[in-house]
Amino acid sequence: RIEKCYFCSGPIYPGHGMMFVRNDCKVFRFCKSKCHKNFKKKRNPRKVRWTKAFRKAAGKELTV
């Protein structure tokens, strides 16, 4: 099963990425440490230029 990165919305293939479980049992999956570090710094994915959330908000990503 291919999961989605919580921060950048990129695909996470089986055996890859990192799973972060908070004390309230909420699960966050990250494709790379870059995404996990930005999440820990409480960065907003919509303001980080390389994420899909930014591209969609800025009108750069074509949605079908």
Score class of each variant (00 low, 15 high):
Ala57Asn: 05
Lys60Ala: 15
Lys32Gln: 13
Asp24Pro: 01
Arg1Asp: 12
Arg29Thr: 08
Gly59Thr: 10
Arg55Gln: 15
Lys56Pro: 15
Ala57Phe: 01
Ala57Arg: 02
Cys31Ala: 00
Met19Asn: 09
Ala53Glu: 15
Lys40Ser: 10
Phe20Gly: 04
Val27Thr: 07
Arg49Asp: 15
His36Tyr: 07
Arg49Val: 14
Trp50Gly: 11
Trp50Arg: 05
Lys37Asp: 15
Tyr13Val: 12
Arg43Glu: 15
Lys34Ser: 11
Phe54Gln: 14
Phe39Ile: 01
Thr51Pro: 09
Phe30Thr: 01
Cys25Met: 09
Lys26Met: 08
Met19Gln: 09
Tyr6Lys: 01
Cys35Ile: 00
Val27Asn: 01
Lys42Asp: 14
Lys32Glu: 14
Arg1Lys: 11
Arg49Thr: 15
Trp50Asn: 11
Arg49Cys: 13
Asn23Pro: 09
Lys32Cys: 07
Ala58Lys: 07
Tyr6His: 11
Asn38Tyr: 04
His36Gln: 12
Lys56Gly: 14
Glu61Val: 06
Thr63Gly: 12
Val48Trp: 05
Thr63Cys: 07
Ala58Glu: 14
Ser33Ala: 09
Ala58Pro: 07
Lys56Asn: 14
Gly17Ala: 07
Met19Ser: 09
Lys42Ser: 12
Arg22Asn: 15
Lys60Val: 13
Arg43Ala: 13
Ala53His: 05
Lys52Cys: 13
Met18Leu: 10
Thr63Gln: 11
Cys35Tyr: 01
Asn23Phe: 01
Lys42Trp: 03
Val21Phe: 04
Thr63Leu: 07
Tyr6Met: 11
Phe20Ala: 07
Trp50Phe: 12
Lys26Leu: 03
Pro45Trp: 04
Ala53Tyr: 03
Arg49His: 13
Cys35His: 00
Lys32Met: 06
Phe7Leu: 06
Phe39Arg: 00
Asn44Thr: 05
Met19Arg: 04
Arg49Phe: 09
Gly17His: 03
Arg1Glu: 15
Lys37Ala: 13
Phe7Lys: 01
Cys25Thr: 11
Arg43Asn: 15
Glu61His: 00
Gly15Lys: 01
Trp50Lys: 05
Arg43Pro: 11
Lys56Ala: 13
Gly17Tyr: 02
Lys41Asp: 14
Arg49Leu: 13
Lys41Gly: 06
Arg1Ala: 11
Gly17Val: 03
Ala53Ile: 05
Lys40Gly: 06
Phe20Tyr: 06
Phe54Lys: 10
